[in-house]
């Protein structure tokens, strides 16, 4: 059974795993250094090498998987550029996985029969959000939203949901509702685990070349928004 090596750098963490069928052969998650930025560009490839070694070498790897966001633009690009480079180098197929899908898969392990609400911190006072059924089907999202708007969506949920992710931690107070439970801040359910990136890629269509791997930005470049507002001149 060939191994899927997957990683995600769309959040502040650097998450890497190797999965052989249902067997997790390697998993790591590096948080940003104390007082430092994310370790994406500096730590990702070393972790991938460790995952490949644990899997028995590149010859055992049959597919690469990468979290394509939503998340930080730079983090997304470090992940996708690395995945595409490795795919080209090794002649391997590359699967793109929505980072919120992977987060939701982790929430599902703790959700019981409840729906899963995956939220990551989108900075600028906003969250990236997507809602999934207990069966894992995406009900809405991914979208970017102000916490107040999201609170309204939560208030109108038809079923109770387990809500997790860096966005849930950050806006815990604004989002508090009878409809959702948000686990303790320290609970690992708030972090994207790369084993889910691998598993989602393994169960996906599996045909695409790396050209089909597209980032999920959810936001236009700032310059485009200025231009739309007709204020590019003022912004300069």
């Amino acid at each position: 059974m060939s191994v899927v090596v997957g990683f995600d750098t769309a959040t502040e963490d650097t998450a890497v795993a190797a999965l052989r069928g249902g067997e997790l052969v390697y998993e790591a998650r590096l948080e940003p250094a104390e007082k430092g930025g994310p370790l994406h560009a500096s730590a990702l490839l070393s972790e991938v090498e460790a995952a490949v070694a644990a899997a028995g070498g590149w010859g055992a790897v049959g597919r690469l998987a990468v979290g394509v966001g939503p998340g930080t633009f730079t983090g997304i690009r470090v992940g996708i550029a690395s995945a595409k480079g490795l795919g080209l180098s090794r002649g391997l197929p590359v699967s793109g996985v929505c980072t919120l899908d992977a987060l939701a898969a982790g929430i599902g392990e703790a959700a019981g029969g409840r729906d899963r609400l995956a939220l990551t911190d989108a900075r600028r006072g906003e969250v990236f959000a997507a809602l999934y059924s207990a069966a894992g089907e995406c009900l809405w999202g991914p979208l970017v939203s102000a916490p107040e708007e999201l609170a309204e969506r939560i208030a109108s949920l038809e079923r109770a949901a387990l809500c997790a992710g860096s966005g849930a931690v950050r806006f815990r107070q604004q989002l508090a509702s009878r409809n959702v439970e948000i686990p303790n801040d320290a609970d690992p359910v708030h972090r994207v685990a790369a084993r889910h990136v691998c598993a989602l890629a393994a169960s996906g269509p599996g045909e695409e070349g790396s050209g089909a791997v597209a980032p999920i930005y959810l936001r236009a470049p700032d310059a485009e928004r200025w231009r739309e507002r007709g204020s590019l001149e003022k912004a300069e």
Binding site: A41, S82, G85, L86, S89
Partner: peptide, 11 residues
């Protein structure tokens, strides 16, 4: 740079 590093590392 990340594309290049990955391309080099894989080989």
């Amino acid at each position: 740079l990340n594309t290049a590093k990955a391309l080099a590392a894989g080989r």
